[in-house]
Design a protein around this nucleic acid. Structure first.
Length: 809
RNA sequence: GCCCGGGUGGUGGAAUUGGUAUACACGAGAGACUUAAAAUCUCUUGUCAGCAAUGACUUGCGGGUUCGAGUCCCGCCCCGGGCACCA
């Protein structure tokens, strides 16, 4: 008998599809709506492990499903090819990053093709190719022109091992996200993107997106909006004032001192008035030396120094209060100064306890009883005001508004909003990235490279290793550095830093729409044909990095009218993470990376695809365990055998039950794929085949057609082969998705659960929609139920149509 | 510390709106076919009691709401992710 040989048919159909260019997508298809299906493009690290398969194979099931539903689906793929890991790996192996990257891409292309995904390779983009990074540089210039790219000397996160600065988003717990080394603070002149200009839009416009709620919350927290007041505290000693930001104006009467961040300019500007300046200076120096790590480990252990000789005046009651400098106050947030209310802020509370400062309670949980508890920690909740002059007795929420307005009318305060989001630092002192297209002229200052001179090619350096002195390796390439000023023509120097890879990946989804355009990153016509992305699938680890940056790019490009939409990804879903068999995150150093090749060789790509779908909920992931794969193989073999036995169907209505089950399965599979519940979709297919295998003669050939179609997205080669064996025309993948008959799906009978006092005592089968009265009679005549009713009179009867009757006695 | 997500058989998991808990699959056990093995097929498989019919118990723990709770509410424990002095 004809045996299912996955390796043979997979090779056959992959060749055939490629020959017929089955997966190339036209920008317009007659009578079809475009559907942009996108997976996060991979980083060419070398080998495609099972985690990649988990990302790409179920995603491809969705793409194929949408195609069969009649959409003109674009499913592109490419490589996020610049970046630190490639460079670090190349250094380790003593080869050039370009060679290493190209070799990996070649290998991964082959591996990706072996999965049988419907990628349109004609649209492939590779971010380290000049034809691509030309437009990355072009985007930089557009941002620069609008003042959204600027160079500034800021304290930055510096990784001593990677020898480059990093964005805030790339530092996790004081450590480098890539190599886990301790990050130190270093002041370097850096190129920044002004993402903070878009904080409000990034926050507001996320609401309407069909994204996982958790991802939205993460982005919102990262942006971190706070509304409050900037309050002016007068400093009589130097006839100046210090503004502080607070979200709790209602606690102002409880403010017993001010605290400035060590970097606050007031301190340096008033050396004369501060009588213990030497001491203060020492404190500032010592806190500067602290690493991010020190600050984290010291959390709770607050330090500071009082500025002797200067006092601040609380605008609300005219009282003079001391001023401290302490590094628990951050300079880069708000005004770099806070009003300390130890009774109602835990940090101030700890500081006040340590330095014996007055703790004055002004919010009570239970006014007018007015019994304030003795505090062992700050009371940060809402309550009623006490000891607050004419605001006493007012709920804190109302007081916030009233005190704010009152101060505003006296010009002592103004409404203010601050965001936690800081600007995006994009300079990297590394070789393997897109050069920043800027030129520094001693006469004219920073000048952008002329657009017609793009791309600024990355020179083919022999020694590309980082220098460690905070300078890019490109600085060593004299030919690259030395250039004529675009403005005056005089001697000038190129910027030698390269761009963070996240810049390259912030716009790649535009390029897929028009990948070979030489005039523009993509034409508006093609952008409008495809974007925004209809379905985006990728890991949750990008919740704030890539996904936030891409939204920023999209908004910035919209504002300059290069595109017509404000959000790049309308629908987003995350796949889970496949862990190593040991339950740990897969990593080469742990040696638990699973290569799917062995399983593919044994069971075929189709079985592996389907097993990945079947394993569990797609967004969950978990440890890799191939034990269940054999179950998928058995299922495919059984399906194959039944079809090949070519059992002829009998008369139409004899097997109506099977036909009904088929239509229920169509409904279930359709709904499940749409919701990315691949595991239950596969299980319902198994139930169907199990049922059919009991009576294979029950199915008409027409119904086999539907079944093969239902399976096609999961096991594309298998389905294509069966399609051909059943003598159907064309390709199964260009068929339209089966539609269920709602008449057949509707149940003719219902199984009624008979409960007595909420416990199941019997089950009775009745015609569907039988009215309550009749079911009641049936329930009472049930012997099993009668045993429990025991002749008693029911107190109550609960009836759920077509489901359940509960007799309460 | 704060914000999310999760905890169901030996294992992966199902239960879409508060209505049969354990679908589907793996594994295990028994049997059929076979000289034998593989493959395939059939049956059993949450726990306890029972020959059985059947009954009791069971969704991390403890309470609660409800005729009825894996699902809702309160309190706790554990695991995973994010944030981490953001005033």
């Amino acid at each position: 008998m004809n045996k299912y040989n996955p390796q043979k048919i997979e090779a056959k159909w992959q060749k055939e599809w490629e020959k017929k260019k089955r997966h190339e997508t036209k920008d317009r298809a007659e009578g079809k709506k475009n559907f942009y299906h996108l997976v996060m493009f991979p980083y060419p690290s070398g080998d495609l492990h099972i985690g990649h398969w988990y990302n790409f194979a179920p995603a491809d099931v969705y793409a194929r499903f949408k195609k069969m539903q009649g959409f003109n689906v674009m499913s592109p793929i490419g490589f996020d090819a610049f970046g630190l890991p490639a460079e670090n790996a190349a250094i380790k192996r003593g080869i050039h990053p370009r060679d290493w990257t190209e070799k990996n891409i070649k290998k991964m292309r082959k591996q990706l093709q072996s999965m049988g995904n419907m990628y349109d390779w004609s649209r492939e983009v590779v971010t380290c190719e000049p034809e691509y990074y030309k437009w990355t540089q072009w985007m930089f210039l557009q941002l620069y022109k609008k003042g959204l790219a600027y160079k500034a000397k800021v304290p930055a996160n510096f990784c001593p091992s990677c020898k480059t600065v990093l964005a805030n988003e790339q530092v996790a717990g004081g450590k480098c996200e890539r190599c886990d080394s301790e990050v130190i603070q270093k002041e370097i002149n850096q190129w920044m993107f002004k993402i903070s200009d878009y904080a409000e839009r990034l926050l507001k416009e996320i609401d309407d997106l069909d994204w996982p709620e958790t991802t939205k919350i993460m982005q919102k927290n990262w942006i971190g909006k706070s509304e409050g007041y900037n309050i002016k505290f007068e400093i009589p000693a130097c006839s100046g004032e210090i503004p502080v930001f607070t979200t709790r104006v209602d606690t102002l009467f409880g403010c017993t001192y001010l605290v400035l961040a060590p970097e606050h300019p007031f301190i340096e500007n008033h050396q004369a008035e501060i009588t213990n300046y030497k001491f203060v200076e020492q404190y500032i120096e010592s806190s500067k030396k602290k690493t991010e790590r020190d600050r984290i480990s010291e959390m709770g252990e607050k330090t500071g120094v009082c500025l002797e000789g200067v006092k601040a005046v609380n605008p609300v009651n005219g009282r003079e209060i001391p001023i401290f400098v302490a590094d628990y106050v951050l300079f880069h947030y708000g005004t770099g100064a806070v009003m300390a209310v130890p009774a109602h802020d835990q940090r101030d509370f700890e500081f006040a306890q340590k330095y014996n400062l007055p703790i004055k309670m002004v919010i009570c949980p239970n006014y007018p009883k007015n019994i304030c508890p003795i505090l062992d920690r700050a009371f940060e909740d809402e309550g009623f005001l006490v000891d607050s002059d004419r605001f006493t007795g007012m709920p804190s929420k109302e007081a916030r508004q009233r005190i704010g307005e009152w101060l505003e009318s006296r010009k002592k305060a103004e409404k203010k909003i601050y965001y936690r989001l800081r600007d995006w630092l994009i300079s990297r002192q590394r070789y393997w990235g897109a050069p920043i297209p800027m030129i520094l002229c001693q006469q004219c200052g920073w000048q952008p490279v002329d657009e017609k001179d793009l791309p600024v090619l990355l020179p083919a350096l022999k020694d590309f290793r980082p220098t460690g002195e905070g300078k890019s390796p490109l600085a060593k390439a004299d030919k690259f550095v030395s250039v004529a000023c675009p403005k005056c023509g005089g001697q000038a120097e190129r910027e030698t830093d390269t761009m963070d890879t996240f810049v390259c990946s912030s716009w790649y989804f535009f390029r897929y729409a028009d990948p070979r355009n030489k005039e523009m990153f993509a034409s508006k016509e093609k952008l409008n044909a495809w974007l925004p992305v209809n379905m985006y699938i990728g890991g949750a680890e990008h919740s704030v990095l890539h996904l936030l940056y891409s939204r920023f790019f999209t908004k910035a490009m919209q504002d300059q009218n290069f595109i017509d939409f404000a959000e790049p990804f309308l629908r987003l879903r995350h796949q889970g993470i496949i862990l190593g068999p040991d339950g740990q995150k897969m990593s080469k150093s742990r040696g638990n990376v699973v290569d799917p090749d062995e399983q593919v060789k044994k069971y075929g790509a189709d079985a592996v695809r389907m097993y990945l779908c079947f394993m569990g909920p797609y967004n969950q992931g978990g440890p890799w365990n191939p034990n269940g794969l054999v179950g998928i193989q058995r299922f495919l073999q059984r399906t194959w055998d039944i079809i090949n036995s070519k059992t002829k169907a009998k008369t139409e209505n004899q097997y109506i039950e099977i036909e009904k089950l088929l239509h229920k399965t169509i409904k279930k599979v359709t709904e499940d794929i749409e919701g990315l519940r691949f595991n239950t979709a596969v299980s319902s297919l198994m139930i169907l085949i199990n049922e059919i295998s009991k009576q294979p003669e029950a199915l008409k050939i027409e119904n086999w057609k539907s079944i093969v179609q239902l399976m096609a997205p999961f096991v594309p080669h298998f389905a294509e082969e069966l399609w051909q064996q059943l003598d159907f025309k064309d390709s199964v993948h260009s068929q339209s998705w089966p539609v269920y008959d709602s008449g057949l799906v509707k149940e003719k009978t219902a199984l009624i659960i008979v409960q007595v006092n909420g416990r199941v005592r019997d089950k009775i089968e009745v015609p569907a929609d039988l009215p309550e009265g009749q079911i009641r009679d049936l329930a009472f005549s049930s012997k099993k139920a009668q045993n429990w009713i025991d002749g008693k009179k029911p107190k109550k009867i609960i009836f759920v149509p077509n489901k359940l009757i509960n007799i309460v006695i």
